[in-house]
Each structure stands twice: as structure tokens, then as C-alpha cells.
Design a protein around this nucleic acid. Structure first.
Lengths: 140, 140, 140, 140
DNA sequence: GTGGTCTAGACCACT
DNA sequence: GTGGTCTAGACCACA
């Protein structure tokens, strides 16, 4: 491709964008839905990106295709994905796109409040919790 | 326990020790079980403490008494609670009791790892996350 | 029941509120969804009414329970139904309720426009179409 | 056909004879098939008329050429169209031709019965429905 | 009893 | 190849 010539062609996303824990009590299809919402809010997937096929995701994760399909369908109903008949799903143009930092932090707030509740039940001081979280965040 | 201070009569715990979110996909009975485990590891409930009655907890939380009863039964099977016929449940003497700081932190690690995953999907930097968590922990 | 004493108890809806044509190309679950939306807009089902169980509807219609469940889930996601854990689904309080005549007519407009298109392709005059529709409407 | 008026050369139909809604759950190829059946029953297309090319219809409607091709093939199998090698499809001589009014009305009956069902679910009175349909039919 | 989730597998519509 | 729909049947969470 000649430098200076930019092909604005949609990206094909791979099945590895998803990570599920089958042991969790959270339903798999819901894990997929919430991950995709975050990836979209974080700007890691953008309008026009082609989603990995239902079958690819299903075989990669070792789950039934219908489980993935259910997640895709609900994301389509919610407007985050659009179906291209016979071609697959892609990220909707309508999708709000990369949110600003404050909005994204707000999406994390409920999870952090849960942490705070658990920490208080465990009688953990703020410093210990922060230290551990910092090391986990840095380790990634 | 402060030396010189003797527990003569067991403490009666109130239903407010539990907080559940009925909207969550996590089963209510499991929320109850995990909260009680944390309260016990954190030393906030100790051997001999009388648990609030199934009926009180159920009405306080607005859930079905069977749900609370199921949690209590599973905690009894696990050895954390014991059933005192005619008196209700109390925290078992056998219960390991207050764990050390490192052990309690380990109980929080899975939740923190989930936070790290969500944060990375939201493209949030460590500093912002730490700042928000700190403010939430301090606010409590 | 003593006259003058009114029990405001929620009504239990029967499976016969639904009619599906399995031969149609419109998916069964979607037929169910759209029928329920109309019944609600028409005020024939109101907030608090208990929906017939998934199993009842499935056996009455001769379809798989998952098909009915899918319709119920999507109506729940859309806010028209709420799930009462262990008890079944009921019409949401939030549901807008009986719409006014003009709004309900608007819900019928797309179908009527389709009729107009088909009639024009069949070279049918307005009078004949109106006459036939009138007889069908009266026959009900 | 007016006496004295002779069709010497077949008419070339344009792609605009078709109208599809891609959002509908009704398959596009079926929408095409049914529209053509109606146009033929209504006498708007007659034996010998040349159908617009698959490519024209596809680009005009924004659908895949295979979809149009499939509809044409099924109409050919049904005998309504014939394939003229190198020239495209045309309306078959064998086609029954313009049906009488009663027959055409019967083709519309199923759609009207659906209207009646929807109207009853919306608790709409016959008069309102008739009034709206009349205005739509007149407006066209 | 209620609905929810998941699987395995079939068939369909569309590219 | 893509996703959609449906079935039959299993197991779970909750009342």
C-alpha cells in the first residue's frame, strides 16, 4: 500500500476480543454484552468494525453458537450492532462512540462500589486495597 | 477482643448486616452467603453471635423467606453457622474466625482482577481508577 | 364477595390471549411480541396483570417453551413486562398503558399502507377494498 | 385490450415496479415474488413484458443481485416468468393474466384479516379503521 | 410451580 | 460462508 494513501476499510475484529469465565454465575451471553459495551465505550471498537462471526466466537470460547447469537441479537436490539444480511454483524454507526474519561469512569463506578462494600465487610483498610489494586493494574 | 472485656451474652445481629441487589444476575442466596463469609473473615461477626431470623432478613430485604433459609442452610452445611433449635441460627464456634490481613486481601483479589479487566476494556488508566476508588472508599 | 367491596387483585391472563400462525414467515416470537404490544396499547392488558406461564403458552400454541421465553425476555428488556422471580411475568407498572385513539391508529398505519400498496398492485378500487374490510371487521 | 390497438413490441418494465422494505422480517425474495404475482393478477404486467434486469433491480433496491435472481428463478419455476436467453426474463404467455375482481379481492383477504386482528387487539372500532384506510387509499 | 441458561443439532434466508 | 429460528431436553435459581 502506497504511503500517504489511506484505505478506510473496516477492521475485522477477532474472536479474541472476548473473554468469558464459564465458571462465573454471570450468564455467558451477558458477559459478552457487557464486554462489548465497554470495548465500545473505550473506543477499542468503532463504528463499521466487523464483528467476529458467531461461529468463530463460539468455537474460540467453547460455547454454543446460540449463546453468542443471543448476545449479538440483544446488542443489535440495543442499537450497538447492526446486522448485514449474509455478511455478519458490524458495530453500528449510530453507536455513540468513544466516551469521554468521566463517562467511562462512571461505567466503572458500580463495580468499584461493590469493591468498597466487600472491603468493608472484610474489614480491609483503604490503603491495603489500593495497594493491591495498583499492583494488579500495573501487572497488566 | 480487648483484654478485660468479657462477652457474657451473645450479640443479636440485625437484618441490616445484609445488602442485596435483586436486579443483579448473581443469585440472592449466593450474595447472602458471600457477604456472611466476608463479615466473618473480617471479624465483624464472631462465634456465638445470633443471626437475625429468616423472617426478619426476608422482610427487610424484600425477598422470599425460602431464599434466606437456603442461604442459612448452606452456611450451616459449610460449618459457618449452627442451628440452635428454637433459638435460631448463630455463628459457629468452629468458624475459623478473623483471618489475617493477607488472607482477607486474597479474598478480594478476584473482584479486583475483574475491575482491572473492566478498566482495560474501558481504556481507563490506573491513576483515574485508583483516584475514584479512593474517593469511594473514603466516602464510606 | 360482598358488593361494594372491591378487591384490586391482579388478573391472571390466559394463554388464549395469543394467536400465532406457524405458517407465516414472521417469526413466532415476534408475532407474540407485537401482539402483546398491541394488547397493551389497546388497554386489554394493564399493569399488574399476570402473564400466562411460558409453559402454558407454549403448550397452548404447540411451540417450544424457549420460543415463548424469548418473546417474554425481549418484552422484559423493552420494559413492557417485569419478571417476578419464581412467580412469573407480569405487565410492568412502567408500561405506558392504554394509548389514546389517535396513537393506536398510528400503530395500525404501517399495516394499512401495506394494504394500499397491495391493492394498487392488484388494481383494486378503494370501494371494493373498503367493502371487504368492512365485512371482515363486522364479522368479528 | 382496446380493439384496433395492437401490441407490436413488448414493453420494457423498469426496476421501480418493485418496492421492498429491507427492515421487514419478510424475506426480500418473497416480497418480490408476491408483488409480481399481484401486478400480474392486477393486469399491470402482461404476457411478453420484459422484466427489468436482475442487476437493475438489485441496484435500484440496494439488495444483493442473488436475491433478485432467486426471486426470478422461483417465478420462472412457477411459470409466471420465462427466460429468454440473452434477453432476460419476460412475463410468460402462459401466465393466467388479469384475474377478475372477485379473485383479486380474495388475494387481498388474508392481509385484511390480519388488519382485523390487529385492530381488535388495538381496540380500534371499525369506523376509525375504515376512515384511515380510506384516506390512505385516496391519498395514493 | 415459575422463568433462565445452555447444548446439540436441524433447517432457512441471504451473500 | 453469514446470522436467525426453532426444537428437544437438561439443569439451575427461586417461590
Amino acid at each position: 500500500m502506497t504511503p500517504g494513501m489511506t484505505h478506510i476499510k473496516p477492521r475485522q475484529l477477532g474472536a479474541e476480543i472476548f473473554q468469558v469465565s464459564t465458571g462465573s454465575s454471570e450468564p455467558i451471553y451477558r458477559q459478552l454484552i457487557e464486554q462489548l459495551r465497554r470495548l465500545q465505550a473505550g473506543g477499542q471498537i468503532v463504528a463499521g468494525d466487523a464483528m467476529p462471526s458467531v461461529r468463530d466466537v463460539a468455537s474460540e470460547l467453547g460455547v454454543n453458537p446460540m449463546t453468542v447469537s443471543k448476545a449479538y441479537s440483544m446488542l443489535e436490539a440495543e442499537g450497538l450492532l447492526v446486522r448485514r444480511r449474509g455478511l455478519g454483524m458490524e458495530v453500528a454507526a449510530q453507536a455513540k462512540g468513544h466516551s469521554d474519561l468521566a463517562s467511562r469512569l462512571e461505567l466503572l463506578r458500580p463495580s468499584l462500589e461493590r469493591i468498597a462494600l466487600e472491603a468493608s465487610q472484610l474489614e480491609l483498610d483503604a490503603k491495603s486495597v489500593i495497594t493491591l489494586l495498583t499492583s494488579i493494574l500495573k501487572g497488566k
